[in-house]
Computed example of a mutant assay.
Amino acid sequence: MPKTVSARALELAQRRVPFVHARVVRAQAPASAHPGDEAIVYGDGTIDGFVGGMCAEGSVRTAALGALNGGGPLLLRVLPAGEVAFPDTPGATVVVNPCLSGGALEIFLEPVLPPPLIEVVGTTPIAEAFIALADVLGYATARSLPDGPPAEYTGAVIVAGQGRGDAEALRAALDADVPHIALVASRRRGAALLDELGLGEAERARVHTPAGLDIGARTAPEVALSILAEVVEAVHARGAPPPTALPEQPAQAVDPVCGMTVTVTAGTPHLTAGEKEFWFCGTGCRDRCATGLVGG
Rank of each mutant, 00 (worst) to 15 (best):
G53A: 05
A92G: 02
G71C: 07
D287I: 10
A129K: 08
V294L: 14
R61P: 12
V84S: 14
H21M: 14
L113D: 07
V121E: 08
N97M: 10
A39R: 07
A217K: 01
M1E: 06
I215G: 04
V121Y: 09
I227H: 12
V5R: 05
Q162V: 03
G155C: 10
V232T: 14
A220M: 03
P98I: 01
R143M: 12
P149K: 07
R23A: 11
G212C: 08
R206P: 00
A67V: 02
L109D: 07
D255I: 01
T141E: 04
A224L: 11
L193S: 02
C258Q: 02
S59R: 12
V294Q: 15
F19D: 12
A192Y: 01
L117G: 09
V294Y: 13
H236S: 13
A160Y: 00
A31G: 04
R171P: 02
Q162T: 02
L68G: 02
T154E: 12
G296L: 12
Q162A: 10
A29Y: 01
R288M: 04
P241L: 11
A266F: 00
V5I: 15
R8G: 03
G43Y: 08
G163V: 04
G282A: 15
L199T: 04
P80Q: 01
I107Y: 00
L76K: 01
A63I: 08
G161M: 03
A134T: 03
G52N: 02
D48N: 13
A169T: 09
E203C: 04
F280W: 01
A13H: 11
A140Q: 12
T219H: 08
A140M: 05
L271W: 06
G53R: 00
A104H: 03
G200T: 09
P73C: 07
S101W: 00
A240N: 12
R171N: 10
T123Q: 15
P256H: 09
T244S: 15
L193A: 01
E201L: 14
P98G: 06
V41E: 08
E277N: 10
V60C: 00
D48V: 13
C285T: 05
P247L: 08
P2E: 13
P210W: 10
G200L: 09
T209H: 07
E168D: 15
A151M: 13
G49E: 05
R23E: 11
T141W: 06
P243R: 11
A202W: 09
V121G: 09
A191I: 08
A273C: 00
P256C: 10
R187Q: 12
S226P: 00
W279D: 06
A220W: 01
V264Y: 08
